[in-house]
Amino acid sequence: MSNTKYILGHFEDPDDLMHGIDKLQENNVSIYDVFTPMPIHGIENKLGVKRSRLPIVAFCFGLTGTLTGFSMIYYMLVHDWPMNIGGKPAFAFPDFVPIMFELTVLFCSFGMVGTYFFVNHLFPGRAPRVMDLRATNDRFVVAIDAKANPYPDKIDNILKEAGAVEIKHNERKYVSYE
């Protein structure tokens, strides 16, 4: 039993990569993930990636912002310190709307930035998690979990036949930590 954790197949071209994914799937090799320097159309469907739940997160952040805005103004202008502004009632809802709207946008955008950092483990002082550095440059990389697919020679052959230019057997998951 080798210490290989992940097998990475490098492709030079998106079409070769898609072909490689097809070949791996034909041979029932489960793919852990794919890293590409640019978005590739239709790859989510091919890999069976589930729909992102990001919109739901965005909606929740937005709603939090709306409610925060409303409660804040309500507390200030109606409960804590009612003022006569232009003879309007203290609870002048139309006035609240712009601020509620702005806080919705603010919470939503900041929340999404936070979610992005959280999901990608991008915390200050922490190295980013990258499985192969060239996937951010010029290579299209398929990662295969070697423990789940314990037949490295067969995988190497499939990748080579599909046109992989380089195959790596990594003993660590994230090379960027080294």
Partner: peptide, 12 residues
């Protein structure tokens, strides 16, 4: 619609 309404309502 709201931009029209709010200003008219507020300025009165």
């Amino acid at each position: 619609w709201f931009a029209q309404f709010l200003l008219i309502w507020y300025a009165n």
